[in-house]
Simulated scan of single mutants.
Amino acid sequence: MNKVIKILALTGIRSEYDLLYPLLKGMQASTDYDLGIIVSGAHHSPLHDFSVELIRNDGFTIVDCIENLLYSDSLLGKTKSSAVLMGALAQTLARENPDFLMVLGDREESIIGSLTATYMNIPVIHLAGGDNTYPEGGNVDEQIRHAATKLSHVHFTMMEEHSTRVKRLGEEPWRVFTVGSAGIDRLREEKHLDTTELSKAMGYDISQDYLVLIHHPLSSSIEQAADEIRICLEQCIETGLQVFVGAPNSDPGSQEILKVLQEYSVSSQVHLYRNLKRNVFVNLLRNAKCLVGNSSLGIHEAPYLCLPAINVGERQKGRIAGKNVQFVPPNPIDIRNAINKALHNEDYRKELKEDRFIYGDGYMVEKSLEIMKSLPSKKELLAKKITY
């Protein structure tokens, strides 16, 4: 009889959890895995409407809730929050003693999780490593992502280019697997809602064309966050379309963005949301005319939906992107021109189908589950060798 693999997954924010969700769901449905979730960070915050409840409603076993997020909009606050997370996570891992810890991406959860587990001789599975961003002025996410790679033992990447970069960091090739983004699995699997169903779920009439705006602060230029979201909002409103605006992430600068969003919420065109049900959010994107802001959603998942994305400012700069993404500086004229192209250039919109599968085919889960069952012993996994 094969040994059941005990895996703990660490999540700290809704956007990251939604990318993990398809794989977590796959593990939960399999008798080969014993899955537990460690819920931390913004999941316990009103910023995202206490999204820990979503995880509970999804039926996963939560092995620990770590309330580490300080109410702060500063770099110091984020650093202290990370320190709190590490201390609490160590206690959880000592108690649960999993076979693997799973982390995703480039937030503090990935670096703190991989560092803590490595010190405790627990192999780490890192999702979405090998990606690359190089905004002017730098971005801490770039450093965190690659540092988490070096602290991890198994790598599930989204693209062959990412796998190549992970190997160039000195990781042994047998540890690196190109599986695609689980976010594409989520889009493929979610039930389609018609506009009547979606309007009822949203509480707004969405039978007319609309835009979606999601904008986050950048660690190297948090003082510009409020100005950028204001310019984006003005240009979205200028179209005359309804604008659905998501809450920013919990990074420094987010509170200044929220102040601007509250200011514009008096407009009949602007509709703010903090935490939508998964199928509602997916169908909101499916029916949108354009995505504006700087969310990685525009890079990784919007191509599959053939959804035009206007990436404003330096965040996400350098990532491999499909034809759906227009990178523009945060000024009104460039944003307005990009939105007009996305809305009215039919030849451009037809081209978007060419890059639909740039970040995966929607079957990341099946590939990953098979790989995890065939991984070598803990002793072999922990014995990392650098290849250069």
Rank of each mutant, 00 (worst) to 15 (best):
R349L: 14
P376S: 00
V365C: 07
E314K: 14
V328N: 04
N324R: 03
S374G: 02
R349D: 03
K379H: 03
E380N: 08
F327W: 08
F357V: 08
D347C: 12
K367I: 08
K317Q: 10
M364Q: 10
E354D: 11
I320H: 05
V325K: 06
K379C: 01
R356S: 08
R315G: 05
G322W: 05
Y348G: 10
K378D: 00
K350W: 13
I333G: 12
G360I: 08
D334M: 12
F327V: 11
L375D: 01
N337W: 11
R356M: 10
P330E: 11
N331Q: 14
R336A: 13
D361Y: 14
Y348I: 09
L352M: 07
I386T: 07
P330W: 15
I386Q: 02
K367G: 06
G318E: 01
R336S: 13
G318R: 01
I320V: 05
R336Y: 13
F357G: 02
G322P: 04
D347P: 09
R349W: 12
K385P: 00
K367Q: 12
L343N: 05
G360Y: 08
K317A: 04
F357T: 13
R349Y: 13
G362D: 04
A383P: 01
I339Q: 02
S377F: 00
I358L: 13
E380S: 03
D355I: 09
L369V: 12
L375T: 08
K373H: 03
M372K: 09
E380G: 00
P376A: 04
K353H: 14
D347R: 15
D334E: 14
Y348D: 03
M372V: 10
Y348K: 08
I371V: 12
R349F: 11
Q326G: 05
V328E: 00
E314D: 15
V325A: 06
A383N: 11
F327L: 09
I386L: 07
E366L: 12
P376C: 02
K373P: 01
E351Q: 14
G360N: 07
I333M: 14
V328K: 01
L369W: 14
K385N: 04
L382P: 02
G313F: 11
R356H: 09
N337G: 07
H344C: 08
I320G: 02
R349E: 04
Y359G: 00
Q316N: 12
K379Q: 08
